[in-house]
Simulated scan of single mutants.
Amino acid sequence: MFGFSHAAYESAYRLKTPDKEFDTEKDAYDFYNKYAAYVDFSVKKHNGHYKNKQIIDRVFACSCEGNRKDDKSNDDVKRPRAQTRKQDEDPNFSYAIQVDIDDTVTNIFWSDARMKIDYGHFGDVVCFDTTYRKNKEGRPFALFAGVNHHKQTTIFGDALLYDETTKTFEWLFQSFAKAMPREEPITIPTDDDPAMAKALASSWPKTYHRLCVWHMYKNATKHLSHVFDEYKSFT
Score class of each variant (00 low, 15 high):
residue 53 K to C: 04
residue 54 Q to N: 07
residue 41 F to W: 12
residue 196 M to E: 05
residue 139 R to Q: 14
residue 181 P to M: 12
residue 234 F to R: 03
residue 3 G to S: 13
residue 165 T to A: 04
residue 217 Y to S: 11
residue 33 N to K: 15
residue 97 I to K: 00
residue 222 K to D: 05
residue 143 L to G: 03
residue 175 S to E: 03
residue 77 V to A: 09
residue 212 C to G: 13
residue 92 N to G: 14
residue 96 A to W: 05
residue 194 P to F: 01
residue 89 E to A: 10
residue 137 E to L: 11
residue 120 G to V: 02
residue 187 T to Y: 02
residue 89 E to Y: 09
residue 112 D to L: 00
residue 85 R to H: 09
residue 139 R to E: 08
residue 203 S to R: 03
residue 150 H to C: 03
residue 47 N to H: 08
residue 133 R to P: 01
residue 121 H to R: 13
residue 210 R to W: 14
residue 64 C to G: 06
residue 165 T to I: 03
residue 58 R to I: 04
residue 100 D to F: 00
residue 51 K to V: 08
residue 186 I to G: 11
residue 27 D to N: 12
residue 191 D to R: 00
residue 31 F to I: 08
residue 8 A to F: 14
residue 70 D to E: 13
residue 7 A to T: 14
residue 176 F to D: 01
residue 23 D to C: 10
residue 188 I to Y: 02
residue 94 S to G: 11
residue 150 H to P: 00
residue 67 N to D: 10
residue 146 G to S: 04
residue 1 M to T: 10
residue 1 M to A: 13
residue 208 Y to H: 12
residue 30 D to T: 15
residue 72 K to W: 09
residue 112 D to V: 00
residue 200 L to P: 01
residue 164 E to M: 06
residue 152 Q to H: 09
residue 24 T to C: 04
residue 137 E to T: 07
residue 172 L to Y: 01
residue 121 H to I: 08
residue 170 E to F: 02
residue 163 D to A: 05
residue 208 Y to F: 12
residue 91 P to Y: 02
residue 220 A to W: 15
residue 57 D to W: 13
residue 179 A to I: 09
residue 185 P to W: 05
residue 24 T to A: 02
residue 230 E to P: 01
residue 192 D to G: 05
residue 114 R to C: 10
residue 116 K to L: 09
residue 101 I to N: 12
residue 154 T to R: 00
residue 156 F to M: 06
residue 14 R to S: 11
residue 80 P to S: 07
residue 208 Y to A: 09
residue 64 C to P: 01
residue 209 H to M: 06
residue 11 S to Y: 13
residue 12 A to K: 13
residue 224 L to Q: 08
residue 144 F to I: 03
residue 98 Q to W: 00
residue 227 V to K: 02
residue 56 I to Y: 08
residue 149 H to R: 00
residue 22 F to G: 06
residue 9 Y to W: 15
residue 171 W to I: 01
residue 32 Y to F: 15
residue 56 I to V: 12
residue 214 W to T: 10
residue 55 I to H: 11
residue 114 R to M: 09
residue 123 G to H: 05
residue 131 T to K: 01
residue 155 I to E: 06
residue 17 T to H: 08
residue 64 C to R: 11
residue 138 G to N: 05
residue 208 Y to Q: 07
residue 143 L to Q: 05
residue 66 G to M: 08
residue 206 K to F: 01
residue 159 A to S: 15
residue 133 R to W: 07
residue 116 K to I: 04
residue 37 A to H: 14
residue 122 F to V: 06
residue 156 F to I: 10
residue 48 G to T: 06
residue 95 Y to K: 06
residue 163 D to F: 01
